[in-house]
Amino acid sequence: MLFWQILIDGFAISALYALGATGFTLIFGVSGVLNLSHGAIMVGAAVAAWAAASEFGVGPYTGALIGILAGFILAFATYFIAVRPIQRSKAIAESEKEIFILTATLLWGIITQEAIAYLFTNNAKTVLPIVEGVTTVFGVRTPRNEYFTAVICWVAIGLLWFLVNRTRRGKSVMAASMNPRGVTLLGIELSSIYLTVWAIYGLLAGVAGILLGMFLGVSSYSVGPLTASAFSIVVLGGLGSVSGSLIAAYVVGYLETGTAYLISPAYRTIPALLLLVVVMYLRPQGLFGRR
């Protein structure tokens, strides 16, 4: 019984982590950007979905769509306000662009977070679930929303895989992540690839944020922890490796869930942090990193 409980709950939360981390790692893989406003985009999408439903009375589907749209807009805003000006800046040395993008996206995340807190207070919000009720599998009563979350996450990840491996546009994105200069030689505009990637990222982060809002609830306080957890998962899996991120998401998700059930909910995050430290010391490029 306990075994099934951990298996089912861990699966849903890990799927959510995986979806959140996938977009994050994709952006890094293609453009070398660590987007520290990640958590803010997820929370922004969820709060938009909540506000649409509770302030303007739209249904859960319309609410979710508005939320995804918000994620999309926020992702583009991040790119145009905090990333592209630095990438194109001549005043900043190449070697320092990394820290500048980190700081700028961090600031942009704080700005988004504060704006959310100002407009909607920092109380936790929950998005109206699309699927309600519970279902019992293997003697474990689980909200249907949890299964729904896992399914949507995997459908989204599957679509991404299809896009990257089976479409022309996707292939050029993939190629760009391996060799940006080579792609430009082929006559593909790098900046249009960046736009594609940020669009995909906005969708993924938006969907992840809304699912999180339905499953657990979010508040403007969640911004920092969400960014930190995506960052940890991505580094654990190896920066830029999508499959590494997926596996790392499951490792972290199950470690947390297992700890919460078997030891105490108070120690939930500690083993995953310890694992991260150990991996950093023994294998700094992450579990599946290319470097």
Binding site: D9, L216, G217, S222, T257, A260, Y261, P265, A266, R268
Partner: peptide, 15 residues
């Protein structure tokens, strides 16, 4: 049961 005020996932606690 005492949980951290940072807890977001209460599933294990309720179970």
């Amino acid at each position: 049961i005492r949980m951290s005020p940072d807890t977001t996932d209460f599933t294990p606690i309720f179970n």
